[in-house]
């Protein structure tokens, strides 16, 4: 028997087609689920003038982090794996408007203070190394 796409379609029973559609949907859902589950950040990197000044793990609650930035102190709070700016010495308080951030690649930026908070998923490195061994 010569295999063509038509032949394969003829070989499939209706139940097969249902199964394939079901598994394809299952696979799609797994993608959505993983992309949601894995985007939770592990640590927050704080940069002032493009230099890393501090790095905090997001799984420890810290009430008040003080960072000395260009125009004065910026206060940050970490709670329930999320981080936000609670108070800042800047004119328009845009950084406070970012609210709680928790996902990888999310940022909090304060332009007048030249402050940038980046969220990374870094603490996973070890387990991936164990896998590839």
């Amino acid at each position: 028997m010569f295999i063509t796409l038509k032949n394969i379609l003829k070989l499939l029973t209706p139940a097969d087609k249902i199964l394939i559609v079901f598994l394809a949907i299952f696979t799609g859902f797994s993608y959505v689920w993983v992309s949601r589950a894995t985007s939770e950040g592990k640590s927050a990197v704080i940069l002032v003038s493009n230099k890393v000044v501090a790095r905090y793990p997001l799984d420890k609650n810290i009430d008040d982090i003080k960072i000395n930035a260009k125009q004065g102190e910026v206060h940050l709070r970490i709670k329930n794996n999320r981080i936000k700016v609670t108070a800042a010495a800047c004119p328009n308080k845009t950084c406070m408007g970012f609210g709680w951030q928790s996902r990888v690649e999310e940022i909090i930026a304060c332009i007048p203070n030249q402050l940038l908070v980046k969220i990374t998923g870094d603490s996973n490195q070890e387990s991936l190394d164990a896998l590839s061994r």
Partner: peptide, 30 residues
């Protein structure tokens, strides 16, 4: 590993399973 980090790869594995499942099924039928 004792860690759920490997589930990052779940969609890749599942797409591969779908393709190889079809391929092997056709092979077995023939």
């Amino acid at each position: 590993i004792g860690h759920t980090g490997i589930f990052f790869l779940l969609p890749v594995f599942m797409i591969m399973a779908l393709l190889t499942g079809l391929l092997n099924g056709v092979g077995a039928l023939i």
